[in-house]
């Protein structure tokens, strides 16, 4: 994870049209931890939501063949069950709840060593890419994390 660059997902471990599983390693140090919190570094809950949203977003990009960009529009019932500290390996999953007309709904979660850390239902508007630069950037990010490459495929987590 590069928290300050909003690069939350490090590697996709499995993906199919209905779900995705990914890995994210919390860095040992980040400017984020200087403020959140001094002497007691914790990943902010909003960044855990962002992590779940990005996993969901890659799932939706994968489903649409990068035809449409998902934009987060609603976060429902987000629960943060444990603190997340530096150098923790996060298991991020997202499952498709519904693929609607111009929107999609996912159920996403983060676990650490199998223990549930946080979860939420997320709603996205899905729109044609508003800029070619964005599509190129998303494709490059997806390639970086192995989405659609030889590491993809198989079931999507527990």
């Amino acid at each position: 994870m590069r928290l300050e660059y909003f690069q939350m997902i490090d590697r996709v471990t499995a993906v199919d049209p209905e779900g995705i599983a990914a890995e994210a390693i919390v860095p040992a140090a980040s400017p984020v931890f200087e403020g959140h919190f001094p002497g007691h570094p914790l990943v902010p809950g909003v960044l855990l939501v962002e992590t779940m949203a990005q996993a969901s977003g890659y799932l939706l990009l994968h489903r649409s063949g990068f035809a449409r960009m998902p934009f987060l529009s609603t976060v429902k019932e987000a629960k943060f069950r444990s603190f997340v500290t530096p150098e923790t390996r996060l298991e991020v999953t997202a499952k498709l709840e519904h693929d609607g007309s111009g929107y999609a709904v996912t159920r996403a979660a983060i676990a650490v060593a199998g223990k549930r850390i946080c979860d939420a239902e997320l709603v996205f508007r899905t729109l044609p890419f508003p800029a070619p630069e964005l599509e190129a950037a998303m494709r490059a990010q997806a390639e970086r994390i192995g989405l659609g490459g030889p590491t993809g495929g198989g079931p999507h987590g527990p």
Partner: peptide, 23 residues
């Protein structure tokens, strides 16, 4: 429009359809 998305999601689920709200 955001509330309408929630309503469309609920209608989609309740009726087992995909309301073509985008079209």
């Amino acid at each position: 429009s955001l509330d309408f998305l929630d309503i469309v999601f609920a209608i989609d689920k309740a009726f087992g359809i995909k309301v073509p709200v985008e079209a």
